[in-house]
Design a protein around this nucleic acid. Structure first.
Lengths: 207, 207
DNA sequence: AGATTGTTAGACAAATTTGTTTAATACTCT
DNA sequence: AGAGTATTAAACAAATTTGTCTAACAATCT
């Protein structure tokens, strides 16, 4: 039952290779032969462990949904910090999360677009948490607005503003990458965007 | 040489079908047989007119780049209106453009990601215009900033803020669509986003 | 040592996909 | 009427892709 030999067992290697291929190329453009090649195993092994391409993809997709849950759960936990500081923290957390997972948004959006069934899966996994968080934050916002220290905004709009600005930074990066001439400059460009996004949201909500 | 029969000649029908299929499913997931089926012609006709799938795709891609040039050129023409009003106009123009072409951003981003050669083509077609426009607008911004009627911002950041917010509205629409229960509510949701985006940018730049 | 599991290499089948070709027919123009 | 173009239907080839299967060997466990 247990794996033998080297720590990095073949089953995991296949999963890692599949993750790379699916996230880089999407479902359709990914070939199982290429996954096997990247994993350094024979093509037969892939089917031995994961039966089908679709099954292997679903494993990756579900794993990526789990990955996405982390920042959403972080959003949900109501820390005892001034809302305005917390929003700034959330932006930074989400932005840094994307820095670690730059291909994730495009992967999810792309696959959900070509297979709407996957949208349902996402909603089942994070829908409730998200709705609850929106409700909580909306209450907080309204309190701050009543105290005249915040501009009115719906939690949904605020969420979408932040996600739009953060996600699009990384979705559009392949297109704007050439503006930065080396890795260091690119990191600088990314950090500049982060500051700009925080500033934009702050101007949007602070009075 | 000329086409005969009905106005909607087969050659054009194939192009239309290809546009639909490529924009909806992307290059890899699109099958030439499906294009032929949608166009209502035999599979042989597709190759008769367009030789190969790749050739047909390139036609569509270049056509979509041309489509994208419209709002970029609109951005370039320096109308004699107060910058602050012009920015608002640009946001609305771009947003409404996306309403008419909701699949365009995802299509371009997706295909450029899987084929970086296409990024070069985009840059060749719109790079110069965009750089020039950025320079012009930056000068204007700086004047307004000097007069203390605008907050400082780089033209590039402003551009990216607007594009991020506008584009992500439509990229994420398939995921958030269920929030609206019918077509009317969906249009309402979209119009609300438009207002929110204008507001956000205004707070970001106006003093 | 024997049983079980992991692994390879390779052959193979079935389906799909792209692209070509041919023969026949219809339409359009001069 | 005849030439040329548009179009269909269908057969076909070649390549790719997914998936199965088998025979052999290696590693591990009991």
């Amino acid at each position: 039952m247990t794996q033998k030999k080297d720590a990095k067992n073949k089953k995991q290697q296949i999963l890692d290779a599949a993750e790379y291929e699916f996230l880089t190329n999407g479902y359709e453009a990914t070939k199982t032969t290429q996954i096997a090649k990247r994993a350094g195993v024979t093509h037969a092994m892939l089917h031995y462990y994961y039966q089908s391409k679709e099954n292997l993809f679903n494993k990756i997709f579900e794993d990526k949904i789990e990955t996405l849950k982390a920042p959403i759960d972080a959003l949900a936990q109501n820390k005892d910090i001034d809302l305005r500081d917390r929003i700034r923290e959330i932006i930074e957390l989400h932005f840094d999360f994307l820095k670690t997972h730059p291909d994730l948004p495009h992967f999810l959006i792309n696959e959900m677009r070509s297979n709407p069934q996957l949208i349902k899966i996402l909603r089942e996994k994070v829908g409730d948490t998200l709705r609850g968080t929106f409700a909580t934050i909306q209450t907080e916002i309204d309190e701050y607005v009543a105290k005249d220290i915040m501009k009115p905004i719906s939690a949904f709009d605020l969420f979408l503003d932040i996600v739009s600005l953060n996600v699009f930074t990384f979705i559009s990066l392949p297109i704007f990458r050439h503006i930065a001439y080396n890795e260091e400059k690119e990191q600088q460009l990314i950090e500049n965007r982060k500051k700009e996004i925080i500033q934009t949201i702050n101007y949007r909500i602070l009075k």
